[in-house]
Nucleic acid binder design. Structure first.
Lengths: 200, 200, 200, 200
DNA sequence: AATGAATGAGAATTCATTCAT
DNA sequence: GATGAATGAATTCTCATTCAT
């Protein structure tokens, strides 16, 4: 068990250190030596655990996907008991909190998706779609309720996701002017106008 | 002048070729040799014109900024004669056309901004801000007119920019479901709802 | 004894697996990890039995030498009762059968003798000489009998060995045109002409 | 021209040095660093000329093939004016001189043919066949003349080639007992007996 | 203006081997 | 006897850049 534990720890350590370096300097700018050094580990030892540099990106990818996954899972049920508008507002707030917590991860994949194989890219995209679908189902519900009026809920849902991600990838601007709370308040307002609007 | 002209041509050729390669495989994955080879040019000759690999990114950066710049310039005046709503819709349509034309460039900078110095990053950011300001001024005008109701025009303006850029950086999804025309129609509708909404 | 037996089995297993890998991909291209893996054995366990990679080559070497040795032993006595010509033909046939059976081993040492220490190389060479001497003694006997006429029986003996080994190291060519039986017939004929010839 | 010349020199230098190292320690045991160092050249400079380690083996391979090729060419014509027996003896003597001069090369390819691609191996094999064919045509001529009696000239021709190559790959033994002249004399005698013998 | 040659630094990865448990 | 973890040294190869001509 001690063995087992140590092995997992090492792998965890590698993942954690590598993720930090990847985020800080980018995947291509990070060398395996850098990662090993920061782990106080011989390069060969690192290879004992991971197989290749790309495998590390892989692991980080899986971890990132799982983060999103659990966000979706955690919030699915809680929303059923609220009204459409409350639910949407709640989901936006929670997702923005999530983006805030994992902003580095969010931005990272906006930038480095290029380095994934197409298979992995699909996985990431699919997970992002399922986040969008969480919002989409809320919008559909609101339409049934007569609370929302929308020509196309898919675009609207993706809009919501992107406007939340924007808190991460435009942080250089937004942080200068708003707190997360303010940003949440404004965006929620705008999005609610968007979905309940008398468009066109 | 012949000299001068040739020199400029060479530089232009390098920029063009490099941009294509950068876009296709990323800045770090593109080697100076690759660029030189595609220009049918010796590496040393290339260095005669550009100084460093990073300088090429620089040039591409300046070029990209100028593209945005001219977009702003071209559209500023045309908008004055329209009504607030017409002007906004027109600006969105024009910007989406621009994003569609330069989608590779747009996506590139979402991904590779990391490789810029902070000074250059500032320049890029500033230019993006000035695009946002184009929209912001339209929003401000609409508020004065009583056509729009908005608590914060800055966020709303950035929303518009990001939702347009999204046509480029989520193309893997959007292209599957919408033409540019459809996308333009839907987003314009949603944005107009957003800005003319009863804020919360 | 159970212990002892198991230990010998393990060693035998290593030798067998290693020999197969050496033959297939060459000594240098075979890694200790490969061998251990194919033995379903930990690398360290393997080292518990063998000491070094080179020692494995050693073992294989000894095994190869012993193969030749037993060939010589097995055939020495049987030959006494035949006539010189019969004996020579018989010895050639038997040796060709041996080469055919151990063609991989034969070829291997033609190729990898380089990787032996000079001491080991001597051992291999000596054993090859003793194979040659088997033939040489037959030739000497034939000369005494007046059946063969030869200026130098050493060269003639080595010729025989090499022409038989050739069945292994030129198999890429010979197999296309001849069966072992045909090859045996032709070579026996040629060699008999050689040794009974009215030369020069 | 100076340029051109230097470039060829460098390549020639690399080939020469590499060949020597390959012969001395084997292809796999020779590192690119070793080669570069012996050339007083930076590793990257070496790669400026050759592309890959394997390409060097390639070059050496081509060179070796060309050596054999020119041996065949040089001797083809000279043989026409002699009698069959004279011609065969002459060809053997010349080929043995060739093997003696290029014994390292000869032995090398007996050992390292494994490291060639199958395409390259074919090329080497084909060239060896054409050497054999030189002898085979002499044997065929001798049969027409009624000078030689042979059931299969292909095997006989390959025998000659192999018995000559043997001077190189059994040098550890043969050099102890014979000079090249003695070896030539004995083998010529044996081969002539072989080909003019009363086949069985 | 143009180029072939050159280079130091560094990339990812593999290897035979050892050691503590 | 067995094993997972560890390592120093070495591998092939690439890169951005410079320099003499």
């Amino acid at each position: 068990m001690g063995r087992r534990k140590k092995s997992i720890d090492r792998l965890g350590q590698i993942l954690k250190v590598a993720a930090a370096l990847f985020i800080k300097t980018g995947y291509l700018n990070t060398s395996v030596r850098d990662i090993a050094a920061k782990c106080h580990m011989n390069v060969a030892t690192l290879y004992h655990y991971v197989g290749s540099k790309y495998k590390i990106l892989n692991l980080f990818h899986e971890y990132s996907v799982s983060l999103l996954e659990s966000f979706v899972e955690e919030n699915k049920l809680a929303l059923d008991e609220m009204s459409s508008e409350e639910a949407l507002a709640y989901a936006i707030r929670r997702y923005l909190e999530w983006v805030d917590e994992y902003q580095d991860v969010t931005v990272f994949w906006y930038q480095e998706a290029r380095n994934l194989t197409s298979v992995q890219f699909e996985a990431l995209a699919m997970q992002e779609e399922s986040t969008a679908q969480l919002f989409q189902s809320l919008l559909d519900r609101g339409i049934k309720d007569g609370k929302f009026r929308l020509a196309d809920t898919r675009i609207a849902a993706h809009n919501i996701v992107v406007l939340c991600d924007m808190w991460a990838f435009r942080r250089w601007l937004l942080r200068r002017h708003y707190t997360l709370q303010e940003y949440t308040k404004y965006q929620t307002g705008l999005i609610l106008s968007q979905v309940s609007g008398r468009a066109h």
